[in-house]
């Protein structure tokens, strides 16, 4: 059932609408009462999540007899941004994922944020799907604030992702959708993979398998769980950051998502005028290259790559 939950009038002949596609058992007596929300499109330059939700909706239409709970799909929270390739909320230039839980009596983006939280809260589980931005390509991963690691890591392991990254709680991240929902009791996982403005269908298929597996294991779908991969887990290793040592154009020398050893060449930063010699970017340690620069123009400090040095051997 397609529902419109929030309507905010726009100035000229249009409304912002928050829509969701809700799937419930055709026979309500089969509803075991659990509710899951799958959301994407907080950032208008990220379309990987829309693709996964689209595939999930198509799967649920074909397999509606398996539904044993409430499955809510929100493919494009920032619909104005999605339709205009704008990361932020257009006109306001506000990052929607930095103003949650929002406010019904404040700016348009704050009203959006408030309406989104009101719509999703009460769900038992939420999955907030992000692509990377246009600058970086990411391995399929789940990101979890350390505060919620105990309750979320067991869920994350069911999602068929390659990496679970538990990071320190940062004050500014308290304004994200995931933090708001987690603080309201909805166990919310943030998934990130691929690159901005593009689709990576193989990663999308990987996550779809994970979401189906999670829903099966939680009793929301009446089916056997699916085989999923064992993810690397950041608590058992170390993350290296490689930032650009100079400005220029970065040309990678290796592919994303591979095992590397220390002092290996990631790529060179070239001077567009050719005055200065290319500057090599080397790996500081061994591990999995899970983030790699996609957009070539860099300033000093631009993120080039991230490497996870796994101490347990799972990622080898």
């Amino acid at each position: 059932m397609l529902e419109t939950l929030v309507t905010i009038e726009l100035p000229v002949g249009e409304s912002y609408q928050l829509k969701r596609h809700r799937f419930t058992p055709t026979d309500e007596s089969l509803n075991h009462g659990k509710r899951i929300s799958i959301v994407s499109g907080t950032h208008g330059d990220e379309v990987e999540g829309i693709y996964v939700i689209t595939m999930l909706a198509e799967w649920l239409k074909v397999n509606s007899d398996k539904v044993r709970g409430t499955i809510d799909l929100y493919p494009s929270l920032n619909s104005l941004g999605i339709d205009s390739i704008t990361r932020t909320v257009p006109f306001y230039q506000v990052d929607l994922n930095r103003i949650f839980p929002g406010n019904a009596r404040d700016t348009f983006p704050n009203q959006m944020a408030f309406g989104i939280v009101e719509a999703i809260k009460g769900s038992d589980i939420a999955i907030d799907i992000h692509a990377s931005n246009i600058f970086l390509r990411e391995l399929p991963q789940v990101r979890i604030a350390a505060t919620y690691a105990e309750s979320l890591v067991p869920l994350a392991k069911k999602l068929n992702m390659d990496f679970i990254w538990v990071h320190d709680a940062i004050t500014v991240l308290e304004a994200t959708l995931a933090h708001s929902l987690n603080s309201l009791g909805t166990r919310t996982l943030v998934v990130e993979y691929g690159v901005g403005m593009r689709l990576t269908p193989s990663y999308g298929q990987q996550l779809l398998t994970g979401i189906l597996n999670l829903m099966a294991s939680e009793g929301i779908l009446a089916m056997d769980t699916l085989p999923v991969r064992e993810p690397c887990y950041s608590d058992h290793g170390k993350v290296y950051y490689i930032n650009a040592p100079a400005a220029g154009i970065f040309v990678p020398a290796m592919d994303h998502c591979q095992l590397v050893h220390a002092e290996q060449l990631i790529g060179h930063i070239h001077d567009p005028y050719g005055v200065h010699d290319p500057v090599p970017c080397l790996t500081p340690g061994r591990g999995v290259l899970f983030t790699l620069r996609e957009y070539p123009i860099v300033y000093e400090g631009s993120l080039i790559a991230r490497i996870f040095d796994d101490q347990t051997g799972v990622c080898q």
């Binding site: 905010i8 009038e9 726009l10 100035p11 000229v12 019904a104 009596r105 700016t107 348009f108 009203q111």
Partner: peptide
């Protein structure tokens, strides 16, 4: 000149 609904 253009104002959104519920904007202050």
């Amino acid at each position: 000149p253009l104002i959104y609904q519920n904007t202050i």
